[in-house]
Computed example of a mutant assay.
Amino acid sequence: MPGWSLWLVPPESSSLHAALTTLLTTTLPSLFPDTDHPAFHPHVTLTADIPPSAFAETDPQAWLDALALPEGGGSGINVVVGRVEVGESFVKKLTLKVEEGNGGLVELAVWCRAGAVFGGDFERARSSTTPPSTLTAALSTKILPAVSTAKQNATTAAEQAPDTQPDTQSDGPDQEDADREERNSWRGTSSVWLVPTALPVGEWTVVARREIEWVVWVWE
């Protein structure tokens, strides 16, 4: 992948993060023992192509802290994780699709790309930004039951968490849908990671991170 990248990472204390990490680092390697599986951290790529020269006059953490982001996330961001999708390139062979519903996620990606790649040029950033959509997985339909199990584990853990709200009586299909979405959603401190993706995959570790509070993750 050319240049460095900015990743959006789920709250690291959430059951969503734990389930995805187990899926990517333990479950999938056990399903494909003869395949070399890089230990990707669960993330959504906001932008790649960041030149190392961006940090020539400062350290990466100071650069990321100073990067302009939309204030308060605008109206907030819902990251909706959906079905498994098959792609073509190495890092998109099989992914969990991220549906972008309210424009907030794309807007965050545009701001990141404008500031990190195009020197603040939002027009160029908007014209070259592909809607963020990846959680890296593996190369076989064997992943489908593994994803289902991971999702159930995440939801069960969220329901058993001390701060989970008590169940309320359903008021019909709309309320049932709302209750189901609440059980499958995670609010907390997400973070933007700066990762040197121009290096070999084994060296894709977080170099700098910046916390953000206005992201909700939903696993449909």
Rank of each mutant, 00 (worst) to 15 (best):
S89Y: 06
V195G: 08
T129V: 15
D167M: 05
A154H: 10
Q61Y: 02
A109M: 03
L108G: 07
V201Y: 06
I143V: 14
E220W: 02
E176A: 15
T197R: 06
S148R: 15
T156P: 00
S53D: 10
T189R: 13
T164W: 03
A158L: 07
W193P: 05
D167G: 14
V206G: 02
Q61S: 14
D34H: 10
E181F: 05
G73V: 06
R83S: 14
D34G: 02
G87F: 06
T164Y: 02
L96T: 11
V110S: 09
P70G: 06
F40D: 13
E181V: 10
T149Q: 11
T47A: 12
D59P: 00
E71H: 01
I212H: 07
P166K: 06
W193C: 09
S53G: 15
T21N: 03
A138D: 04
T205L: 10
E71G: 04
S13F: 01
K97W: 00
T141E: 12
D49Q: 14
D171E: 15
R124Q: 14
T35H: 02
L23K: 07
G119M: 11
T45G: 04
S133R: 11
S190Y: 01
S15M: 03
P166Y: 08
A62E: 09
Q165R: 13
P2Y: 01
L23A: 12
W204M: 10
A208L: 10
A18Q: 13
R180F: 04
E213L: 12
G82T: 08
F90R: 07
G119H: 11
L24M: 15
W219K: 09
D59S: 06
S13Q: 13
G101I: 05
G74D: 11
P145C: 13
